[in-house]
């Protein structure tokens, strides 16, 4: 059971990083970014292409991550430019379109045959019983914690954080007070794009890495973000790690192994029921 949970830590670390990015996006720029992992996937594939051009692996990865951040910024610019006053539904729909576009573009640009991903962080960090905890796992968990704590400090202790919070709570008022809404929104997109591109580029060489498998990690990551209500970074991290470990533990039991793929959906449904628990039917409608 414990070994299974540890086996799921690698996936949980990635869920946590992405959940933190999703929470930041929902809080600060009012978007549930379904293309969050697809941006990272695109960056990871670009890194492979750059590496094939005889660039050192670290340079290829850095270049891929930078392009991923630019792609993310571009999507953010489109939303900031044309949908500044739109609701979260319309803005999130753009990210669904971006997800589909990036997956399709990946097949067109990179083909459907496997690519040779080279790991930046090969090898184990330490072992617990039969389970090897890899360097990638350790880095992912650390990255999730660092990003969550860093963002919390940035939002609560810095001037730019105050502006971001103002923008998130009262966008029109903030803009009237001179807060550069468009620039800050794009900066959030670039920042989260950079983090998710880095995370996916680190993880992709160690797991199934076709465009669809990678991009659809957004489903469990969204479930993790939901545990924090798309508001709380600490619960997003806990949710990601717990979800990965729960899936890993369930995989060890024959009768329950199918259940692990329903866990993210169960979490989403339970969350919705919980938030609706005090609603009266007519009012809720």
């Amino acid at each position: 059971m414990l070994q299974g949970a540890l086996a799921g830590l690698a996936a949980g670390g990635l869920y946590a990083v992405i959940a933190v990015c999703l929470t930041l996006m929902a809080r600060l720029v009012r978007v549930v970014n379904f293309s969050q992992v697809a941006i990272g996937m695109f960056a990871a594939y670009l890194a492979v292409i750059f590496a094939e051009q005889h660039l050192p692996q670290w340079a290829a990865t850095a270049a891929g991550v930078c392009v991923g951040a630019v792609v993310s910024g571009l999507i953010g610019w489109i939303i900031a430019q044309w949908l500044p006053e739109a609701g979260i539904g319309a803005r999130s729909a753009v990210s669904v379109a971006s997800l589909l576009l990036l997956v399709s573009l990946s097949f067109i640009l990179f083909g459907s045959k496997p690519k040779t991903f080279k790991s930046l962080l090969p090898g184990p960090a330490f072992s617990v019983g039969n389970v090897v905890v890899t360097q990638v796992t350790v880095v992912m968990v650390a990255l999730a914690l660092v990003v969550a704590v860093g963002c919390h400090v940035l939002l609560t202790k810095s001037k730019i954080g105050t502006k971001l919070r103002a923008l998130s709570e009262r966008p029109t008022t903030a803009e009237l007070l001179g807060v550069p809404a468009k620039g800050l929104s794009i900066a959030v997109w670039v920042g989260t794009g950079l983090i998710s591109a880095a995370a996916v580029s680190i993880v992709a060489p160690t797991q199934t890495n076709d465009p669809i498998s990678l991009s659809f990690i957004i489903v469990p990551a969204s479930a993790a973000a939901l545990l924090g209500g798309f508001r709380r970074l600490d619960l997003a991290v806990v949710g990601g790690l717990a979800l990965g470990m729960l899936q890993g533990a369930l995989a060890q039991f024959e009768q329950m192994s199918v259940l692990r793929y329903w866990v993210p959906f169960l979490i989403i449904v339970v969350f919705l029921l919980w938030t609706q628990r005090k609603e009266v039917w007519d009012v809720a409608r």
Partner: peptide, 28 residues
């Protein structure tokens, strides 16, 4: 609560849309 519900509903709708679009994604 209603804001959270809205976000949750979008998450579910998005997940379902992506599941439904899985094949379409593959046939662009």
């Amino acid at each position: 609560i209603s804001k959270l519900t809205k976000i949750g509903a979008i998450a579910v709708a998005g997940a379902l849309l992506m599941t439904a679009c899985g094949e379409d994604t593959n046939s662009t």
